[in-house]
Design a protein around this nucleic acid. Structure first.
Lengths: 336, 336
DNA sequence: TTGAAAGCGCTAACAG
DNA sequence: CTGTTAGCGCTTTCAA
């Protein structure tokens, strides 16, 4: 405000001139390594005050150009519209900042092209790490990064070329299935198989969850109908349509379900509302993901919450201390 | 991958050498202004191919240092944990990219210090614009930016020193209140006032919503008890406690409520669950905000959805074409 | 204790 | 049509 309408921003040269010293002294003071340069504390103080007054802010672009490390860390995330990804992003930001890293985050809206476009852009910004969250093709991102000597990491969905931190989908799904089967039996008076809905059949998480789902049924000696494994994608509409299709084809739908995400759950609930399966007629549900309103409002549902803090703790552990390329770290999800 | 383990990243000089030309030609080609420089198309092609092969990525730091405009745009956002802010961020990113701007987003977790810390950091990165969303003290951010000649904008919560785009809180709240009053009367068999809960008494949006709330009561000739305006903050716990306190003090709580956000609604629902106000005993609700699960699962609730696409369209309209400093743009929210 | 100077990778005149 | 050159603002030896 001292200089209204600056045509040029204040630089260390301006500061040096005002302080009657050199740019290098200003730089050293402002970077906090002035004891190493043994700069007079009066000078240091004068410079600091001046910088304050002038509203000086380093030009990161210049600073980073000169430095060897950028301290920038990138994250690619598919969506911001559910609690899981929301908390991943929020935790990531917080933990990055705690380490003096500058987080840049890009949302790809599940567009595979945007995924690698975003990675490329991040490389241009000289990121030191790229964390691909829920990426369709994480190995492609890893390759791209590797070509520029940048390390990468997969979160939520694993890849084969970089360390991956994911939920323990098999165990989580098995336990969730067990619980829902018990609830369902209690309600029905006899054992009966569940329907699985949501996710992509060829993504790792979904297939692991299907495996857990089948294991729990097998354990309890319940035969499962393969037609009732509906890996129809994540979008709510897909789940809604898939259920409607089963209802049309078979005249009814199993009243016990394993839902693969809150996104799919939205579709399941739309179907329930449209087809009148509410109140006493509502199905017994399990959801591999958590949402506070569902927890509060839905009577007959079990939810697993993926352990985001633990997952990100591992991510930053790898960033801080390393891990080998293909390693797969599985974090147990928590039951409420 | 041609060069494994690059110690140095490929630069335009490397490319120039490989192509047998100069760095400026490479720069021009890669920036797409090679017709202006009338560079031979064979050369252009060769350079492009080489860049591809080498996995070349511009060094943004160097590029931006030299350029006059950074094309970076910053957004400060309080949280990622609800649909409203989630869609703000997602829409912002998308629209920024459409314009060739690079979005950087920081989540402040409602910490006022982080707010200005984040703004300062963005200034270091030479952002051209800062959009403060739901900021506690947006004018402080505006001052900070102005001191560096950077323009800023307020979203969701208005400031006095920069253009602000917000919801039409008064009209939205009045209409929402009307609807809930009607529902409540239908249920009760007679007219009765609502309770207002959530938000901070001194924030603009909350006070406008209270004004709309009062106006709707006045219109319908319903007297309102000032003790039932509980602007207890946004956190769920606060709402939960506030309701419990009213219940303790007065023996009961009005069974019609205006809830100021989905965050507060979470607290209201916790209280409902704990105190047994569910099913037939559930209150008639209105919520100034929207959530898909609440819409699906909650019987007796009206929700207003803030019109995020329209709000961001105005934001980018200002960025593209300007607006004067203190202007306040109010976007009508939509009723489902 | 401090300053001078080189150079990070890129862009944009300007000079051929 | 193409190359040479001068910085952008900063960090970091190196020399004083």
């Amino acid at each position: 405000m001292n200089r209204p309408k600056q045509p040029k921003r204040t630089t260390i040269y301006d500061l040096a001139e005002l302080a009657g010293t050199s740019a290098s002294a200003v730089s050293a003071v402002l970077n906090g390594n002035w004891k190493k340069r043994r700069i007079g504390s009066q000078l240091a103080e004068r410079i600091t005050k001046l910088a304050e007054e002038q509203g000086y802010a380093v030009n990161m672009q210049a600073s980073l150009l000169r430095r060897e490390k950028s301290k920038i860390i990138g994250m690619i995330v598919p969506k911001y519209d559910n609690r899981y990804f929301g908390s991943i992003v929020e935790t990531f930001e917080t933990m990055a900042r705690e380490r003096g890293l500058f987080p840049i985050i890009t949302c790809t809206r599940r567009d595979p092209n945007l995924e690698i476009e975003a990675a490329r852009e991040m490389l241009s910004y000289q990121v030191e790490w790229v964390v691909s969250t829920g990426a369709t093709d994480p190995d492609r991102v890893t390759d791209l990064c590797a070509a520029s000597g940048v390390r990468s990491l997969n979160l939520d969905l694993p890849g084969s070329k970089a360390p991956s931190v994911i939920s323990d989908n098999f165990s989580g799904a098995r336990e969730l299935t067990r619980r829902v089967l018990v609830n369902y039996e209690r309600k029905l008076g006899h054992r009966s198989p569940l329907l699985f809905i949501g996710g992509r059949g060829n993504d790792h998480n979904t297939s692991e969850r299907v495996r857990g789902f089948l294991a729990a049924h097998a354990e309890m000696g319940i035969a499962i109908d393969e037609h009732h494994i509906l890996t129809c994608g994540y979008a709510p509409e897909k789940a809604e349509e898939a259920l409607a299709a089963v209802a049309r084809a078979e005249g009814s739908v199993p009243m016990g379900m394993f839902v693969n995400s809150t996104i799919s759950l939205e579709g399941v609930m739309r179907w329930m509302t449209c087809s009148g399966h509410t109140g006493a007629k509502a199905p017994t549900l399990g959801c591999f993901d958590w949402d506070p309103f569902v927890a509060l409002l839905c009577e007959d549902i079990e939810m697993v919450r993926q352990d985001v803090p633990a997952m990100l703790a591992r991510v930053f552990d790898i960033i801080d201390h390393g891990a080998h390329a293909g390693s797969l770290i599985e974090i147990p999800p928590v039951f409420i």
